[in-house]
Design a protein around this nucleic acid. Structure first.
Lengths: 211, 211
DNA sequence: CGTGCGATGTATCGGACCGATACATCGCGG
DNA sequence: CCGCGATGTATCGGTCCGATACATCGCACG
């Protein structure tokens, strides 16, 4: 998940770790707290080792002049490579079970602007299915095991059930919008102010058959 | 968190791993999926090593008769010890920062029936504060960085903001109920008399006092 | 009658991610 | 000029997950 998020963000512009964390927090603030450095830096190293991102020099060419000043360790800016973009496209298009849990869905959704419509639809429907299952589970508990549970536990289930129903409705709306070919829920018509977003993978390209 | 949940459940009745997982899923279904065995069994071992739970024999005393039949490894029933109950009481009463995140709050809330009113109030207010902060963060992003984000990301933030506002309202209700001394939100009239105030083990269950 | 299959049940392993911590630099106000 | 908060990189131990393996039990179906 982290890998996907980093690749996605670096596609917008090169960044260093600290910045990445902030942007991540802004983009995913709705679904999870800020990422920990204990995850971020090792992941960056892993991505670099895999060749999906590279370091970009901060100081211009004449950096040799002052390299030995208390071992100046400036910030390290990373940028995505061509292989990294391929990797991102692959990750964003293939949907495993983890694509539909809270965090996984949130990350995928946050990059829907870079996802083709068919995949968007598939993910939204998968998520809806998952939430419907959770909802049914909660209904079962409330209907069948209510007398075994105390009032607080029941209240917790009710609140959870409510959240499920609400999310299903939200997803229904998004799915309807996708099917009608319109932009997200945003009520304004097309021609969003300035440049909206380019959709790098327009529908109908690099189709990977499933094994 | 898992430790707290296990201790809490075993306080209701002795159980083996599989059962524990199911009860956990029923009690916490609103906030998280079923616990993984990869967490459960190591944690059980840890709790046992610490002396907070012990094994209870399944087969009655004459188990020596058939011990060597393909190394019959029956299910292992655990029960909580007196030290375990102390440990639970300590964990449930002290509130660290992790008490207010989604999972931590959910687990604490699920055991509110075993928590005294002052602690309940403290946890509810801490949770409210945390959600309010998240809400403000989302509002900031929506107000200040809206033009930097695509329509899908914005929609995600809106949905998250909505969920925050709803949860704050829910918490307000619960807090008001706590302050008024009434039982949770449950709308049923209190036929059980007015002493719902601070009786950690509510009436009608858990008859097992110390042997 | 047996046989296969889904539910029950215990267990381990590698990996993802977190929280605490450490340490260095920079800009700015007192 | 000194301290202090923001910026910035990095590691370590611990918690929890997902996949996997393996054994038993009850029962439906041929």
């Amino acid at each position: 998940m982290l890998e996907l998020a980093i690749l996605g963000l670096l596609q917008e512009s090169p960044m260093h770790g600290y910045e990445l964390r902030k942007e991540l927090a802004a983009k995913l603030g709705a679904i999870r707290a800020a990422i920990s450095y204990g995850s971020l830096y090792p992941t960056l190293r892993r991505l670099q080792a895999a060749g999906w991102i590279t370091e970009a020099a901060t100081t211009p060419a004449t950096a040799e002049e002052v390299p030995a000043l208390t071992s100046r360790r400036g910030r390290v800016v990373y940028e995505i490579t061509a292989e990294g973009k391929e990797r991102f496209a692959k990750l964003i298009a293939q949907a495993g079970p983890e694509t539909y849990d809270d965090t996984g869905f949130g990350v995928h959704f946050a990059f829907f602007a870079r996802t083709d419509q068919a995949t968007r639809l598939r993910i939204l429907e998968g998520r809806r299915r998952k939430i419907e299952e959770r909802r049914e589970g909660l209904r079962d508990v409330l209907a069948r095991a209510a007398e075994r549970l105390d009032a607080y536990t029941l209240e917790l289930q009710r609140h959870g059930l409510d959240a499920c129903e609400r999310e299903v409705r939200w997803l229904e709306e998004l799915i309807a919008n996708e099917r009608s070919g319109r932009a997200p829920t945003v009520p304004q018509p097309g021609t969003a102010g300035g440049r909206a977003n380019e959709s790098p993978p327009p529908p109908g390209e690099s189709r990977k058959e499933r094994p």
